[in-house]
Structure formats: structure tokens, C-alpha cells
Simulated scan of single mutants.
Amino acid sequence: MIEHQPLPYRPMSRHRRSEGKKGGTRRAENNKIYAHPLPLTFSQTYVTLGLSRHTVLNPCCEGYWDPLTRSVWVTNPKDSATLWQRGFFGKGNISRSEPSWLSRQVNIRKAELSGKVTSEEITAKRREQRKRFKMDRANAIVTAAAEAEEAFRIGKTVTNPIMIPSGATWKPADEAPEKGPSAIPQNHNKQDEGRDGELDDIVDVEHLQLTPQEAFFLIWCFDCLSVLNPQTAEGMPLQEIWLAFQTCYMDPGPSLQLRPDNPFIVNYVAYHHYRSLGWTVKSGVKFCVDYLLYKRGPVFDHAEFALVICPVYEDPADSDSSTLCFRSTQNISWSWLSTVNRVNSQVMKMLILCYVTIPSSVLVSPEMLGSPKCLAYYSVREVTVRRFIPARMRD
């Protein structure tokens, strides 16, 4: 069975303690929008004699299984908003996390009509200026080195050395005029603004992508997601979904056989373990780890823990006979571990090694792997890794 162990206590920094005390309209709005930690909600109805009864409200979302991307596509905007706002499940396919492509396009269209500058344009301008600054600095360094070498060759002193530009003093040679109220055409009247201001023609082309672990957690634990077959558009039963999520990580062939070290099962064991303890689990590929653990969600605060899944074979013979491309504890080097720990220490995240014990293939047969009942034979243990700094930890 999956063992539940509490994460180690980590005292928050002074900056993060004071951050929780700050109020504001934005935080109050987020508390209202993301008030439900899970897709299921409860309604309270009053009956006679002052008694109340609670009923479970199931959103019943739908998604299509895509084996090429190993994800479930939720194309209905209402279902996408429900799954994101109630537990932060999935991510937008053309967004960083929250599926906000449509709202960004609406803001861009409104900014174009009003003559204002959007945040995307400001970011693009800063990146272009940074690129030009680096090119000007490199050219100045090369020119100054060539001039100094020429002066040394002829035995003279450089009287007017070339100044190397710095980030504090450098300015672009040709500044483009910024957008403002004067950028609006003179013939832009209210009639044109009403005609150009129609935003209904913007088609939302974004969908929510759920990983197999997220999708199966919603299906098996809450029964609030229906996965449809992309060919027949019909609902897939639970056993078919379980097998489809396993086979997408395996090479197709006549010798296709389920194994207890399937990457989907190992990752789902860790995902289910922390989700059942109340953590919000998101992908950690940005920080070279498997998962990130949030107390409430990415909207409220940063992740406190970075998780690396380390599968451990109960029977060493299973590791030798495995044909799956899955990272094991034998392939993790100390240099790689030190690098990952350094990366996450710089962003105020504690590294957690999550050891998932894989049961022996003798104990768990391929027939047993065809059902989620095999999850009872897996266990989870945690090891905290801290970066040792001798100059700072002498006391």
C-alpha cells in the first residue's frame, strides 16, 4: 500500500512570512475564484425541523485522449475553467499554465484600439534592447582590443580609448516612438471604435491538456472526468483508460507486456500520494525535477518543494530485464544530483527524493497490472536533500 509520510518542516523566510500578511483586491479575488480545492463541490439544502442535507455536485467534464502527446484534451472552455479553478489541473496548450490565451488576445485587441502598449510588446521590446546591448558591448570590446593591440605594435599609447557600454548607461541609438494617445489616428471616431471594437470574432483555439496522471486521478478518485475515444467519440471504460495510459509509454510490438515498472504507474503512485495529502502537484520540468508541490496553487505562492521520483526495484532481476526507458536510482550520479539541488536552492525550493518501491513481477502478474488494484503493492518513502554551505552553517 502507499505509505503516507509528512514532509519535513521548513521554516519560511522573512519575505514569505510578510507576503502572507499583505492583503489587496487581487488576493481577495483569487480566494473567491479558487475557493474550491477540488472539482467536486457540496451544496447544503435545508429540510424540515431545521435539519440540513449536503449533496455532491459533480461537474462531469469531458476530454479526448491523444496518445501522440500523452495527454487528455479538454476542449470545452467551461470544463477547462472548472478543472483549473478547482485544483489547478492541467495547463493550456499555448499558455504557461492557466489557459489564458483568449483573455490575452482580448487585452491585445483592446490595447490596439486605445493606443496603449501591451505587456507582451513591452517584454519583446526589452528583449530586443537587451540583445542589441550585448551586440554593441561585444563589438566595443573587439574594437578596443584591436586598437590596443595596434597601439602596442607601433609603440604608442591609446589617447582616446573606446568606452565599453554598461547596462546602466547604455541607451539604444534609435528609440522608436512609444504608443500613446497621440498614436490613435485622427479620423478614429466613435463609430469606427464601435465597429473595430467587436471582440466576438476572436476564436478560442486553446484547450486544456491533462497528463495521464492528472486525468486518471480525476477519473478514479472523483469520477468527474469522461475520456472519449478520438476515433469513435465514445466514452472509454476505466479498464481501457488504465491500459491506454500504460501502453502509451511502451514501444508497440507483438511482445507488448505490462510491467510493474511502467512509467505511468510509478509517476501516478507519487502523484496520488501527494494529491491525497492535500498538495497541489504540478510539473517540474522547468527546474529539472518531476513534480513541484504547492500548498494551495501557483496563483497564491511559489512551490515549496521540488520532487524527484526515484524508482527502487524490490527484485533486482526486474531492473536487468526492463526494456523501458525510465530513470532509476542507478542512473542518478552525484554530479547530477548536486546540480539539481543547486538549481532548486537558488529558487527557494527544498529538494525531495521520492523513492517509489516497485513490487516484484512475481508478486504482481501482468493480469493484475490490468487493474488499478495493483497500486496497493507500491509504497512511497521520502528523503530530504539540503545543500551544505560550510561558510553559512558553522553555527
Rank of each mutant, 00 (worst) to 15 (best):
E3R: 15
H4N: 15
S18H: 10
K21L: 14
K32G: 08
A35E: 11
P39F: 12
T45A: 12
L51W: 05
T55S: 11
G63F: 08
D66N: 14
P67R: 00
S71W: 00
N76R: 09
P77G: 07
L83W: 00
F89V: 03
E98R: 06
R104F: 01
Q105L: 11
L113I: 07
R132G: 11
R132S: 15
T159G: 10
P165N: 06
E175V: 14
D192C: 11
E198W: 12
V203M: 09
D204G: 00
L225K: 03
A233Y: 13
E240L: 09
T247D: 01
L256I: 09
A270M: 03
G278V: 04
K282T: 10
V285F: 09
K286L: 08
V289R: 02
Y294H: 06
R296Q: 04
P298G: 02
P298E: 04
V299F: 05
V308D: 09
T329M: 10
S335F: 03
S335R: 06
S338A: 10
T339M: 10
V347S: 05
M350S: 14
L351D: 06
L353C: 13
Y355D: 04
T357H: 11
P359V: 07
P366L: 07
C374H: 09
R381S: 12
R387C: 04
